[in-house]
Design a protein around this nucleic acid. Structure first.
Length: 181
DNA sequence: CCCTGATTCGC
DNA sequence: GCGAATCAGG
């Protein structure tokens, strides 16, 4: 991929907007962040407006923890157990298990999604609010544990009524559509 | 480990 | 001019 006038122009714009070299590289496509940096230097525009913090990864927050809890001594009167199967069903119905923020406070997008992150799609791909689960997943694994269960669940077992069967098929189709995006 | 930009140097 | 390798750092 060569540095056409158009690409150089885009590079200047994005660099000026404070995007990191790697982000610019991804957006341009066909080049690595090194190529971008090298070009930036050759163009003579090293310094820029933004100090360099595309996503808040660099430093960990001071963690504004009130930290004054005597460490709950009460008996573990935690949430109701509920079997794994029930949890999954519950999640699929109400879908509160979804949206997971990154440490940066933002959501995982196609740009920030890492290989070690859950790639479970959330929302409408055609919408700008579309994002991914983003929770940690073992490299090589597409989803986090929770979503892997959902994706893999044969959804068989349990005598379903014809109506439920159709519903399940529909859900699977919708899920596939999202993943394929 | 994730990321950032900076520099070098063979091509 | 280009960019991979490497370095230094958060």
């Amino acid at each position: 991929m060569a540095w056409t006038d158009e690409r150089v122009e885009t590079l200047k714009k994005l660099w000026g907007d404070g995007l990191s070299a790697s982000q610019i590289a991804k957006q341009l496509g066909g080049v690595t962040r090194n190529a971008v940096i090298g070009k930036v230097h050759r163009l003579g525009l090293s310094g820029r407006a933004a100090p360099s913090r595309p996503a808040r990864h660099p430093e960990a927050k001071p963690a504004p923890r009130p930290r004054a809890q005597p460490a709950a001594p009460a008996k573990a009167q935690q949430a109701k157990p509920a079997t794994p199967a029930q949890s999954v069903v519950r999640a699929e119905a109400a879908a509160p298990v979804e949206a997971e923020r990154l440490a940066s406070g933002e959501y995982a997008t196609v740009l920030t999604l890492k290989d070690s992150m859950c790639k479970w799609p959330i929302g409408d791909p055609a919408d700008n609010t579309f994002r991914f689960c983003g929770r940690k997943s073992t490299p090589g694994q597409a989803y986090c544990d929770a979503h892997a269960q959902m994706a893999y669940q044969p959804q068989a077992k349990r005598k379903r009524k014809p109506a439920d069967d159709a519903r399940a098929v529909l859900d699977n189709l919708q899920g596939a559509r999202k993943v394929n995006f």
